[in-house]
Design a protein around this nucleic acid. Structure first.
Lengths: 207, 207, 207, 207
DNA sequence: AATGAATGAGTTTTCATTCAT
DNA sequence: AATGAATGAAAACTCATTCAT
């Protein structure tokens, strides 16, 4: 099964079409979930015929797998940047800021991830147990260090991280509800959210 | 086609079967989403034949609709209880507590709701725009009142509510991820979460 | 996946439809081979809709597997009847006779088997290595015993069996060619074949 | 569309590629049958791209047709050599020998032919009805002549020929079964078969 | 000559729903 | 009420063939 996508040398067209498909697939999967999405939808969204799409990918699973694979790097990047040598509260607030920016700029990725976790992470469990847990544990130790040193208030590092994830991702994952509830004020929701979350995590962490 | 569900008089058996089906459907829909679930799965889970199940409900959509319909009441109940006459910080912490209990005791309902919102709320939009928004706006005014009166620190009431929703529901919706990340500590996750969230919202709101 | 075919209690309709499908499948598979046959063809031949056919069987593979499973018993029966206590030459000639009758009465089964073996026996190898080989070895020992005792002429028992298989099955598997070549004489081909083969194996075995 | 195959002048490269493709196609068709084989398989086996393969042949049917066309000459050659002027029993035994050598040296061709006949000879019927039948009838008359002249025992010439075909081709067409059944003795199967068949046809024909 | 890209027509299978009893 | 049987519509995927270069 030598698919174009698997060959060593990639032509310009292959790279472009691959990206086109992945973007269309991200649209569709993030909205309807894996089983709720059809190859037809993705092909239509990408402006390709179904067989042509399958010329570039081995199947629905393969497209989804590729998206998740790419996702995790992007997803963990903001936490990776948390600098153990930096000023603790600034570092954590900056992390909140980066996560909120991701919710604003990459809502499809956020929803793709949320969909996968909601359904029990059938296709991403290994990465949760491996890279994700490892990174969280590492950064939790950094936060605990700060806390033990009295640089921030005592806090459970893991639950702090969950709160940051939850509050920021909420603006992507539950966007439709947020928009409806905020009504007219929805236009400024990210600035308002940023102010609110900065306030909340500052007060939580101030020693 | 006189469906049992539509007839005025319901026998005990009818009520029991209806509940059985709804519980089975909740299991399945909350795990796989609407389109990812099949009537076969639900029937098997309920221990009924497919045609028998469809004797009680008009179809897949109808079962899902009924679940969502019921859900909203349960879902809004904790917020409804927020008492304008109560002690502000206590009231809000008690609300956080109730929401966290719901995440612990009704995770399927939480995931059903999350699934629906994630997919753009196609089947629940009206209730979001109506009852839910109305209730939130009402309680936001209460909170603003407290804030204006100096009883709690200045805070954006809507974003406060979003934060409460996000942080508490996270323990139901992202349970699989929380469990993996916490590893051995997962057994006490709700107590730890409660302590953490109480601390966080207390500090946020203390005038 | 509780298929009707798998349930304990079989209704009359289930038994009838199952047989109907297997007969249609035998027609089609024996003519076009496994990969050359389509479920559409089988369904049409059986006078059923495709989904209805799949209500009784789990898929194309399952139908084919069931046919092969049944086939082997029928297939080995004539050899099983070879009686070690009988009169040697009579026994072998009677075996030739039974095999030739099978070629005449069950040509579809013969062709199904031939198709499978021709393609390397991918779905029946285990039965070849097990029951078939065991039976052949057992009967080969019987024939060798006769030969050693001088009751029949010296002969390689395995190759004798191959010759019997080949010459008799030929009238089923290569029927189209036999018919064309014999032209007008084709009507009596089984009687003629019987006379010819009886003569041949008698002369071969007479001590 | 001037296909290379159609042009008058063939370069060395063209001839080589054509042979390469036909050999690959023989591998694949003889194993999986016509409908069970794909152009992809053939192209991969030949180490060519699919469109390149189709540059040399007009399509799947065309490749198969060419193989069958060539096959018949090879196939009938051993019988053609049966010399009416030769010593009858020697001639027939030599024919058996040539057929058995073909089964040993050209098993793919044998299986390609068997596949085609099994499926009702849809693509080779004309050659069966024409050249093949003609040759068989001609040689049958020769054999009948020998028989009438008392040079060999009375025998039905057509059924004799079928027996020779069946027993020799069996070692190619049912090779997988023969190998399994013979087990350790499989190494010498062609010598053993030759001894057995020589014995059998000698005894049959000796006046 | 050769190949990357593209596609229409299948082919297997699934699924919500309906029918008949 | 309940179920075995049936089906049309769709979904995933395959494949021979063609297009463009």
């Amino acid at each position: 099964m030598a698919r174009a996508a698997a060959s060593r040398t990639r032509t310009r067209i292959q790279r472009e079409k691959t990206e086109l498909i992945l973007s269309a697939a991200l649209d569709v999967f993030s909205t309807y979930g894996f089983r709720g999405s059809t190859i037809d939808q993705i092909a239509r969204q990408a402006g390709l015929s179904k067989p042509n799409l399958l010329y570039y990918f081995d199947g629905k699973e393969a497209i989804h797998a590729r998206l998740l694979e790419r996702l995790l790097d992007t997803w963990l990047e903001p936490l990776k940047q948390l600098d153990p040598e930096g000023e603790p509260i600034d570092e954590i607030l900056a992390y909140v800021h980066r996560k909120l920016e991701m919710a604003r700029d990459f809502p499809r990725e956020s929803r793709l991830f949320a969909n996968e976790i909601l359904q029990g992470a059938p296709r991403i469990m290994k990465q949760i147990e491996g890279p994700l847990k490892d990174l969280v544990d590492e950064k939790a130790r950094v936060i605990r260090g700060w806390s033990d040193a009295g640089k921030i208030a005592p806090v459970d590092p893991h639950h702090l991280i969950f709160s940051i994830w939850a509050t920021t991702q909420h603006y992507a994952d539950f966007d439709i509800q947020v928009s409806v509830v905020l009504g007219a004020r929805a236009a400024t929701r990210f600035e308002d959210a940023h102010r609110h979350l900065s306030d909340m995590f500052t007060k939580l962490l101030r020693p």
